[in-house]
Each structure stands twice: as structure tokens, then as C-alpha cells.
Design a protein around this nucleic acid. Structure first.
Length: 537
DNA sequence: CAGTATAAACAGA
DNA sequence: TCTGTTTATACTG
């Protein structure tokens, strides 16, 4: 799995003990372990050496005593010998490294993402050695190591978790950042956000000239992945720093002008439309990573660099959604929709520069639909649109970016919301067989390839119009992607939200909107909508 | 030397 | 206090 990079992730070593246990009821993730452990499975299956069991126990036993101090070094002595499988474990808990354990923990989560606390939890529950150490007392050392590993390895990406309000989500880097400490540049697609986060954080944080911006930015170790704009999620202030960091990429630069939140969409879109600067390329790469993830996603990829980029993203989203059962359909929908919306919109934009222009065109009334979506960035500027209402609309679920801060998820959010993402999506983009969906899909593609199609579709059901509740069933399709979504959400969300809110919102039901929107019109709607809705024809 | 573990300093929320 | 990031140190292969 994740393995691409994560190779480590699934090493064989896993102890029988811990793997399956992963899901504590109490755990955040509601889902019943979906497939859980891809990683685990593999891991376990693979090599899993049996030995662990014993070892584990032993370790546990021993463990308590020594805890950290001894371990490596001390353990080293004894353990050292142990070749992974061969014999003893490298570590008190087995042969797996922290990074591997973390990977498993994340993979075990239905949504493939966990918060730090959840990772701790998983460790305690799943790894015998840590069972005893859940306490604050004993836990300090290994928790510190967990955190350290998360930050250190690129294979782990941090997605800021608005909804939960908790800490960020930690996910496996699709590209497999691998353990490499800081593969900075590469960055995986998703990473962007996360990375951004990191970047920003780093940038902002340490003032020490050491890593001063410039250098860091570049490739040097300091900068990790400046790729996208996404990070708005982070904090306001940081952004500035972050941006600096990012600036490397042209896009970023542009974005700077704009604003954090909206930036993303705009950025992408803008960049794409305008030129497809190098930055874009990078994004693509990132995206690629996503693609990897996503099965069908590749669809558009080829078409246009710019367009492809986003498209892929979409796919990635869909991909992401693992298994989760679609529990909270509603949420999922809402959440996803927005995202997709944004995505689609973005796509459409790309597809049709014209559209973009049209959209952008100041002269024309700001095409809410379209513009909203894409242009969002502008909107905010124009008038902060994210009125509370909007947020409200999104309702609870939409995680609006930082703006709203507490997302719908908030409460049960984790349970519900998260799952949502995961649950439905899988089939989403790629597959969606349903007629409507199909249309939507087409629309997605269409933008790229055929504008015409879009127009057609567009014509039919503009977002709002479509509002018709009917189609909803489909919604689910899109929902899930939380993982990515979050990330995107950060970036996109704002836009989406805005758009949605502004347009759809008025009222009532976002839900309705979603579907209709996404289903077919979405793309078109965005681009076309702009033209349609706003522009006569 | 690379990878990993551990400890700890710092910083932000 | 928790979360994250970084740096430093030590050990192993």
C-alpha cells in the first residue's frame, strides 16, 4: 500500500499481536475496520513473523522497566542481533520501527488518517508493548518518538483537521515519502497541504535564521514542499511566512496576492489557465501521486497539464475515500460535494479558459456560480462571503476552512463526518454509473476535452436549478474523500463553501444542491454556469 | 553513512 | 498541556 514509499509501512514484522486490534471501540474512527489493515494485512500476512508474539510479550514485560532509555541502546545490544525476522525484535515491541507502526495505525483507520491522539491510542491498543504505557507517565518517551517520526518522515503527511478541532490528521503520503527524512521537494500530491503545513510551520516557527526562508524555500532541506497553496488551513499568521516559503513556485506568488483560503482554487485555476507554469507541473506531480492512489482517476490526466492536475485531484479524492461505510451520508455529501464542486469547477475552468475569462470578466456580473467556485478568491475579497450562514449551511459538515474553524464535524464529526468521507467515495468520480453521475463525470472530462458537452450539460441543470432533491442518491458517490478532502477542503473548501453557500445556500438545502450540482452540472455549472446563469447565453 | 530511537528545546494553540 | 518541529546524540547494520 502505501507502501510505495511507505514501504516501511508494511513490513512483515508486525506482530500478530497488535495488528488487528487496531480498532478500539472508543477510537475515533467509527467505522468498523473496513479493510483495515491493508497495511496490517500485508504486514501481517507478509511476514509477520510469528516470533513477535513471544517477543512482544517479552518486550512488554521487559519494556516496562526500561522504557525508553534502554531500549535502543540497551536493547541494542541484545536486540541488535536480532535481525528483523530472524529473531528478536529490534525494538521492545518488535521489529517494526515507529514509522512502521505509525503507518499501520494509519492504514488501519478506515479513512486512513488518524490524529496524533488516535495514533497513540492505536499503539496502546494494538501493540502489546505499549499497552502498559498508555499512561502519561510512561508514555512520554514513546509518544515523543511518535511525534518525532511523524514530523520527520515525509511518508507521513499532516492534514489539518478542522473538523475535529483536534489536532491534524496524519496520513500516509501516497507517494510514499518514505522515511527519508525530508524529501522536501518531492512532496506528494496530498502532501502539499500537509507539507505546506509543515513548511509554513517551519518557516514561521523557527525564526532562527538558520533555515531562513530563502534557502528553505528552495529545495534545500529546509523547504519541504512548497508546492501548493493549500495550506491556508494553517494559521493566518503563519501563512505569511508560509507563503514566503512557498513563493518558490510562481503560483504561490500569485496566490499571495489573493489570499490564503481562496487562493488555492484560484491559484490552481489561475495558474493553469494562465500558463501552466512550472509550478503547475509540480502540482501535477503531486497529483500523480494522487493518481496512484486513485484508480480511475487517471482519466483526464493526459489532456492538459493544468487541467489534468486538478482532475487528478478529483480522482484522488475519490480514491481516498476508502471504505468507509457511508454513514453519515448527509455529511459526506455536503462535505464532499463542496469539494468536488470546487474541484469540478476548477476543472471546468481549466478546460475552458474562455470560461474562465468569462467568469473572471469583471464586466460581466460576477457569475456567482462559476465565479464563485473558481473565483472565489475574489469573492472573499469582494466581500467576505463566508458569512456565518454559509458556514452554517455547510452545516455542520462542511469543514470550512479555518474560517469556520469548528467544522460541522465538530462533535460527532469525527465519527460521522470522517467516515463519511471515506465511506462513499470510492466509487465516486471514476465510477459513478448512474446516469446523472455519468453526466457529471462526463462533465468533468468534458471540460477538458469537449467544451461542448459541458455547455450542453450546463444548460440543463445549473447548480441551483438542479437543486432538485431528486438525484441525491448519487450524492454519496462523491462524498467520501475526507482525507484528501480535508486537505483540499482547506484549499478548496473555502471556495466551495462560498460558492455553495452563496449560491446554493440561501437556503436551504445544501444537500440538494450538492447532488444536483455535482452530478452533472457541477462542472459545467461552474464554468458554464457562469456563462449560463449569469450570462444569458 | 543511513536509518532509527530517544531526549529535549521550542513554539503555537 | 498537547501538538509539532527540530536538533542532537547514540546505536546498529
Amino acid at each position: 500500500m502505501a507502501e510505495a514509499g511507505g514501504a516501511a509501512a508494511a513490513p512483515p514484522d508486525i506482530d500478530p499481536d497488535f495488528e488487528p486490534q487496531s480498532r478500539p471501540r472508543s477510537c475515533t474512527w467509527p467505522l468498523p475496520r473496513p479493510e483495515l489493515p491493508a497495511g496490517a494485512a500485508e504486514a501481517g500476512g507478509a511476514g509477520a513473523a510469528a516470533e513477535e508474539g513471544a517477543g512482544g510479550a517479552a518486550a512488554a514485560a521487559a519494556g516496562p522497566g526500561r522504557t525508553e532509555g534502554a531500549r535502543a541502546g540497551g536493547g541494542g545490544g541484545g536486540a541488535a542481533a536480532a535481525a528483523r525476522k530472524g529473531g528478536s525484535r529490534r525494538n521492545a515491541w518488535g521489529n517494526q520501527s515507529y514509522a512502521e507502526l505509525i503507518s499501520q495505525a494509519i492504514e488501519s483507520a478506515p479513512e486512513k488518517r488518524l490524529t496524533l491522539a488516535q495514533i497513540y491510542e492505536w499503539m496502546v491498543r494494538s501493540v502489546p508493548y505499549f499497552k502498559d504505557k498508555g499512561d502519561s507517565n510512561s508514555s512520554a518517551g514513546w509518544k515523543n518518538s511518535i511525534r518525532h517520526n511523524l514530523s520527520l518522515h515525509s511518508k507521513f503527511i499532516k492534514v489539518h483537521n478542522e473538523a475535529t478541532g483536534k489536532s491534524s490528521w496524519w496520513m500516509l503520503n501516497p507517494e510514499g515519502g518514505k522515511s527519508g527524512k525530508a524529501p522536501r521537494r518531492r512532496a506528494a500530491s496530498m502532501d502539499n497541504s500537509s507539507k505546506l503545513a509543515k513548511v509554513r510551520s517551519k518557516a514561521s516557527k523557527k525564526k532562527p535564521p538558520l533555515q531562513s526562508a530563502p534557502e528553505a524555500t528552495a529545495d534545500s532541506p529546509g523547504s519541504q514542499f512548497p508546492k501548493w497553496p493549500g495550506s491556508p488551513s494553517s494559521r493566518s499568521n503563519e501563512d505569511s511566512d508560509v507563503w514566503n516559503t512557498f513563493r518558490l513556485s510562481p503560483i504561490l506568488t500569485e496566490q499571495d496576492d489573493l489570499h490564503d483560503e481562496e487562493l488555492l482554487p484560484s491559484m490552481v485555476y489561475s495558474s493553469a489557465s494562465s500558463n501552466v507554469p512550472p509550478t503547475v507541473t509540480e502540482e501535477l506531480e503531486l497529483i500523480d501521486g494522487l493518481n496512484l492512489m486513485s484508480p480511475s482517476s487517471s482519466v483526464l490526466s493526459t489532456q492538459q497539464s493544468a487541467s489534468s492536475g486538478q482532475i487528478q485531484r478529483d480522482s484522488s479524492f475519490s480514491l481516498r475515500s476508502p471504505n468507509a461505510a457511508g454513514q453519515t451520508t448527509t455529511f459526506g455529501n455536503s462535505l464532499f460535494n463542496p469539494v468536488e464542486m470546487s474541484l469540478q469547477s476548477s476543472v471546468s475552468h481549466f478546460s475552458g479558459p474562455q470560461t474562465l475569462e468569462a467568469l473572471l470578466t469583471p464586466g460581466s456580473p460576477p457569475p456567482r456560480d462559476v465565479l464563485m467556485t473558481q473565483v472565489d478568491p475574489v469573492l472573499p475579497q469582494t466581500g467576505g462571503r463566508m458569512s456565518s450562514r454559509t458556514l452554517l449551511l455547510l452545516g455542520g459538515q462542511s469543514t470550512q476552512s479555518k474560517m469556520s474553524s469548528g467544522n460541522a464535524r465538530g462533535k460527532p464529526a469525527e465519527q460521522q463526518a470522517e467516515p463519511v468521507g471515506a465511506s462513499v467515495l470510492p466509487s465516486t468520480l471514476p465510477i459513478v454509473a448512474s446516469p446523472q453521475n455519468t453526466a457529471s463525470i462526463n462533465s468533468l472530462k468534458a471540460p477538458v476535452s469537449a467544451t461542448t458537452a459541458q455547455s450542453v450539460q450546463l444548460g440543463s441543470p445549473p447548480l441551483l436549478s438542479s437543486a432538485g432533491p431528486a438525484p441525491l442518491g448519487l450524492n454519496q458517490d462523491r462524498l467520501p474523500i475526507d482525507l484528501d478532502i480535508d486537505m483540499y477542503m482547506e484549499n478548496l473548501e473555502c471556495d466551495m463553501d462560498y460558492i455553495i453557500n452563496s449560491e446554493l445556500m440561501d437556503g436551504e438545502g445544501l444537500d440538494f444542491n450538492f447532488e444536483p450540482v455535482p452530478s452533472t452540472p457541477s462542472y459545467p455549472s461552474s464554468s458554464q454556469a457562469s456563462s449560463h446563469t449569469w450570462v444569458p447565453s
